[in-house]
Design a binder for these strands. Structure first.
Lengths: 337, 337
DNA sequence: GGACGTTAGCGAAACGGTTTGCTGTCAATG
DNA sequence: CATTGACAGCAAACCGTTTCGCTAACGTCC
């Protein structure tokens, strides 16, 4: 590996001049510049990022820590984030906390020692599990979920609106006994979506029955067993609002295994899905997030923080969900004429 | 941020001693060790990875460059790779070449300047597009696809076997007019799978009709238009072998849009799918790859190369595909008694 | 008791860049 | 002609570690 000294020697100049040429950081006469450029090409010189990092105290690395890489929703975020990070001239270091606060803690520490210039984090823990020093000295944007009391920038969706939209749709179809399969209650997303549901029902003088609201991990399996349990009883709901995409798949599987049909016997609406890349039948009625836009915005905010160093006020960007009507819902059949 | 010098001063020792304590690289008397440990804790000292990288010429970074992050197949690889990389004590830097050789070239250069200790690459170009120096001095494992003439370790599947298995299955169902929608011919995967198909047919004295073999980008849209074209003509095939998962979705969509049914009118078999996370209906008959195993193996080989420095012989690991029978194929209906 | 081996710990030289003065040159100016 | 200013380019300091080679101090053995 050629170093800057080799280039300098070959071109008959000082290393400072080579550095100036590399970075366009000072004027260099055309003649010398040409000699340097030639030497660089001939030696196939590439500057050592490590040395540069040490001196500049920068790493050109942006960390992304998502909650669950097996979830297509996060895979989609990763896709967008890679493109955005590259476009800003950084490289993406990827972490998966797998919804485990302990793993997340290790990741935060790792991000710190790697010296990443900034991080985009989808937090998985309850607000009180975070230490302030875990965020000190590193630009941070929280994506999708927020942490109460944390002073980082956030990019989220309006979860209450999502729950409200989906459940309003079910109510408009005539459903009254509506259940919900939702995520862990310590997460802002789960809580917001459920609140939205309760709002929507309350606005019509209704409330979900106690046994019809179940929460569990944001995973297909958890949703499957919860739904199977809930839908087994005779006073089962006629419609279900599911808080995320992979859970919706679990719920649909549970319903099929119970011998029920969707949408004829049970209507299903969800939030946040990318499930099945369009191939799932019936296609889910759902509220979608503008994932790519959200991710781009998160990186815009982050790069802004990294490069401005300024202490602008905290920014909380909230995106609105949009209802996408599929084939997973039907008007309530009146059971006795 | 406290440096090693601050710690040394506070503990009344030299930086060499602090370093020895940090790395357990030399014997330090219990007394001094205790003083150093205290100082480290009190100053909340964390060594600068940048300085360490410069000195050790290591970055603890492993790069993964995949061909298409929007493809669930690669998303699955990313998931496995993140876990494996973390388990080996490295961090994952992720790149997406988006099937573009130019982008890939930039990525390779970026990986080099970042000083990644190694890389796992899903190559997207033809063999003659690579310069030997692009792989010099950095441990490399090619995953999924190989590059003819390249001396890196590889982890691939037996593509011919995959094509053969899938097409044999279609032949066993009685199909004779079998078509194929496959990927770009400069890729080892596309070529191998098609060869396998041709082998299987040749073994029964058959050959695909010229217009029934179409290749295009490994994308849903490309497959859609190619399939629509091929299936529009009256002598259309009764079965199609599709070379990858996202293409299979495109083909199924094309068939539905042409008013044909799968499997009643057209049987479809594919290779390499993770499509639709199990939700796709009808479920595809396909040959699957052990993606997680392949990825783990790739990282095992890579870490081995990184840490052994030895010049063991090149290793080419080939995994066997397995046929998974879904509902997308039917026996050929005899058209005239 | 001197020669010699061990060994804990230290000082200083790397590692490969960037950046800050500083120097020497040359043209313009009074 | 002496002074000044602009400016191209350089030498050296610096970033925060690791590591090599050395030095004392100490115990051992003839």
């Amino acid at each position: 590996m050629a170093t800057i000294k080799d280039v300098a020697r070959k071109a008959g100049v000082s290393t400072a001049t080579v550095s100036a040429v590399m970075n366009d950081s000072a004027f260099v006469s055309p003649e010398l510049r040409a000699r340097v450029v030639t030497a660089i090409r001939e030696l196939r010189y590439e500057p050592s990022q490590a040395a540069r990092n040490l001196r500049r105290n920068r790493s050109q690395l942006i960390a992304l820590a998502v909650a669950d890489l097996s979830n297509p929703f996060y895979a989609r975020i990763v896709w967008s984030a890679e493109a955005a990070v590259a476009a800003w001239g950084y490289s993406l270091v990827l972490f998966n906390s797998d919804e485990k606060p302990d793993t997340e803690r290790r990741i935060l520490s790792r991000i710190r020692t790697l010296g990443c210039d900034g991080m985009v984090l989808v937090p998985v823990g309850a607000a009180n599990q975070y230490q302030p020093h875990e965020f000190e000295g590193i630009a941070t944007v929280l994506l999708g979920r927020s942490i109460e009391g944390n002073s980082a920038d956030t990019v989220t969706i309006d979860n209450q609106a999502a729950g409200r939209q989906a459940v309003d749709y079910l109510l408009d179809l005539g459903h009254r006994r509506i259940g919900s399969v939702t995520g862990p209650m310590q997460l802002s997303t789960s809580k917001g979506r459920l609140d939205g549901m309760i709002d929507a029902m309350a606005a019509r003088g209704l409330a979900p029955q106690p046994g019809h609201v179940r929460s569990g991990e944001f995973r297909e399996e958890a949703a499957y067993s919860v739904a199977r349990d809930m839908m087994g009883s005779p006073d089962r709901p006629t419609a279900i609002y599911v808080a995320n995409g992979v859970m919706a798949i679990g719920v649909m599987r549970a319903i099929a295994d119970l011998g029920l049909r969707c949408p004829q016997d049970v209507s299903i609406a969800s939030t946040d899905t990318v499930a099945g890349a369009g191939g799932l039948k019936p296609r889910l009625t759902r509220t979608e997030h503008p994932i790519a836009d959200m991710t781009n915005e998160a990186l815009r905010l982050l790069v802004d923080r990294i490069e401005e160093r300024g202490s602008e006020p905290v920014r909380n960007i909230v995106f609105q969900p949009a209802l996408i009507v599929g084939e997973s819902c039907m008007p309530l059949r009146v059971e006795a004429g």
